[in-house]
Design a protein around this nucleic acid. Structure first.
Length: 556
RNA sequence: GCGCCAGUAGCUCAGUGGAUAGAGCAACUGCCUUCUAAGCCGUAGGUCAGAGGUUCGAAUCCUCUCUGGCGCGCCA
């Protein structure tokens, strides 16, 4: 697939090197150069500030340098126009011929337009949500799910091989506590007097789990007499129940994990112990007061961390190191985690451990998806786990639907603390950006339906340059041509929101085009070209929305 | 006290060191006998939290200050 920005970069680099060969400018050959999108279209479709940046080194006026380069660049038929503009920008306008080629490419590739092939694809593991299996998923999980899944789609489209993963923390104190909480509710259900554990989970869902066990596993439960064993039984059943609920919600949210990875297995198959000795072999452990510490301060952490307690039990950190070691041992060359904001302090120690085990720093990346506030009617909605509140992800899907929820989360940068306006999101109106986008798609489908009913033929891949006279058409095609590089950039920078922003801009350009250009006109050649443009927009919106996990409706 | 994230239009947010800082919503206008008005055109709205610095050029990079959120466990 043609990635225009890359093509332009190579044209400019070539031109500069030619100018150097011709002794027109006196610098060492260049290998790469900055090409950017001007803010204002009157400054071209692409521009390079190379002359400005090299002026000092060359001790020359940037305008002079730029005009020398422009002599070489303008010979290329890729561009319609090359401008040299004060104080030294080189502004490039791509030719209509290129736009026509882009349109042809979109039509012929269709669903696979935007999918980039890489010669050496990386194997990428992306882990997101990984909420505790002690209860239902909440709103923050929904954000992580939307962002993580979209990012996985983007990286896949950019040519790598991506697996999605969910880490189940089914080990440790909280699990026992969960077991005890459910056991207590179970006993109450059966009329047995008991005391609820002090730190236990008090949500109503615990009662649901208790009655679930009562319905399905009563005889099995009642046959266990040993208390620890009984708690363990309840804990296991509760985790199964919760995880299966989480799986169900994720699938409704259109997230398909390759693997749900159980922490417990790391303890049972010796991975945790092996990781411990592995770290020891790397010389990053030391003992003090009977505990074993990981020297995380060597890796930028602010203090060393205990990995093995005095009584020989591993800490959560050690299990987590074992988990990430496991990911690398499974052959992933890149491991990405998306965490909640409350875990950012944990990054230094874990990425330190990954490095201590000999993996590249760049191979492990933790992204933090910032907090989500729910707003309704201008008021902050408290996220308590009480009834009637919009606390769970399932409620959110129920209330506003997967499409709206996913788009809302994806259109914002992960770094921003998000105010999620429930009332706005629920509105099926122009106030909701998701509908704005979907409406563009539905409108195009409607044009094609109408064309069919009027017996207007549409011949794919045949287009006439004259339609490029309309400024709206040109703007639209230029935007479409940037879709592949948008995917590449969004994947490389791990910023899925870019695609959401891109699609909104595209929809806007289409609505503007629609208002100014009647498609179903009598002139057959021109009509076919306009239909081609519409088809291109339809394809890119559909492909883009599918990356975000949002449906592209044919009618609204 | 230390660390992470944020502070951009009335609100929610985009903005890759570049040129006159943008969008959606809200407000005020105008546009449906013509392919979907869930749309389009226009107007108004800004000390990019503040102060220094680096640079030919800073919302963007650095330092400090202020404000908000979160974290600083041998919990997970």
């Amino acid at each position: 697939m043609l990635i225009i920005k890359e093509k332009i970069e190579s044209i400019i680099v070539e031109s500069i090197n030619k100018a150097i060969d011709d002794k027109r400018i006196d610098i060492p050959p260049v290998t790469n150069i900055k090409v950017e999108y001007p803010k204002d279209e009157k400054f071209g479709d692409y521009s390079t500030p190379f002359a400005l940046e090299s002026a000092k080194q060359l001790k020359k006026n940037p305008m002079e340098i730029a005009s020398v380069i422009s002599e070489y660049v303008s010979k290329n038929e890729f561009f319609e126009k090359v401008d040299v503009v004060r104080p030294g920008f080189l502004n490039l306008y791509i030719s209509k011929k290129v736009l026509n080629e882009v349109a042809a490419e979109i039509i012929s590739l269709s669903d696979s337009f935007g999918i980039i092939k890489k010669n050496n694809p990386e194997r990428v593991n992306i882990e997101f949500v990984s909420a505790n299996p002690t209860g239902p998923l909440n709103i923050v999980s929904a954000r992580a799910a939307a962002v993580g899944d979209t990012l996985a789609n983007l990286i896949t489209a950019a040519g790598d091989i991506v697996d999605r993963e969910f880490y189940i923390n089914d080990y440790g104190n909280q699990v026992r506590l969960l077991g005890e909480s459910v056991l207590s509710r179970y006993r109450t259900l059966n009329g047995i007097d008991n005391e609820f554990p002090e730190e236990g989970y008090r949500g109503d869902y615990i009662k649901d789990i208790a009655s679930f066990i009562n319905d399905k596993f009563k005889s099995e439960a009642d046959s266990i007499s040993d208390h620890a064993e009984l708690v363990d039984f309840f804990a296991k059943k509760a985790i199964e129940y919760n995880v299966s609920g989480q799986k169900e919600v994720m699938s409704r949210f259109k997230v398909n994990y390759k693997q749900w990875f159980s922490e417990r297995t790391l303890h049972e198959d010796g991975s945790v112990e092996n990781t411990f000795s592995d770290l020891k072999d790397h010389g990053v452990l030391y003992e003090e007061e009977g505990k074993t510490f990981f020297k995380s301060t060597n890796f930028g952490d602010d203090k060393d961390r205990v990995v093995m307690r005095e009584d020989g039990r591993p800490t959560y950190l050690l299990a987590d190191i074992a988990y990430h070691r496991n990911k690398f041992k499974r052959g992933y060359s890149k491991v990405i985690d998306i965490w909640g904001p409350d875990h950012h302090g944990y990054i230094a120690r874990l990425s330190g451990a990954v490095r201590a085990l000999g993996y590249q720093e760049s191979a492990f990346k933790v992204l933090i998806a910032q907090q989500v506030n729910l707003i309704a009617n201008g008021e902050l909605v408290k996220m308590s786990k009480r009834l009637g509140q919009f606390s769970t992800m399932a409620d959110l899907i129920e209330e506003i639907g997967t499409d709206v929820a996913r788009y809302f989360f994806v259109m914002r940068s992960m770094d921003s603390h998000l105010d999620f306006d429930l009332v706005l999101a629920k509105k099926e109106s122009s106030e909701n950006p998701v509908f704005y986008l979907q409406y563009a798609h539905a409108r195009i489908c409607s044009i094609f339906r109408e064309a069919e009913s009027r017996n207007f033929p549409y011949i794919k891949g045949v287009s006439d340059n004259t339609v490029f006279d309309s400024p709206e058409t040109v703007a639209l095609l230029k935007a479409l041509s940037k879709y592949p590089e948008e995917i590449k950039d969004a994947a490389a920078s791990l910023e899925p929101h870019r695609i959401g922003v891109f699609l909104l801009r595209l929809a806007q350009l289409f609505h503007r085009f629609y208002a100014e250009n009647r498609v179903l006109i009598d002139d057959e050649a021109k009509r076919n070209s306009l239909l081609t443009v519409c088809d291109c927009v339809r394809i890119v919106i559909r492909n883009g929305l599918s990356l975000v996990g949002v449906n592209a409706p044919e009618k609204m």
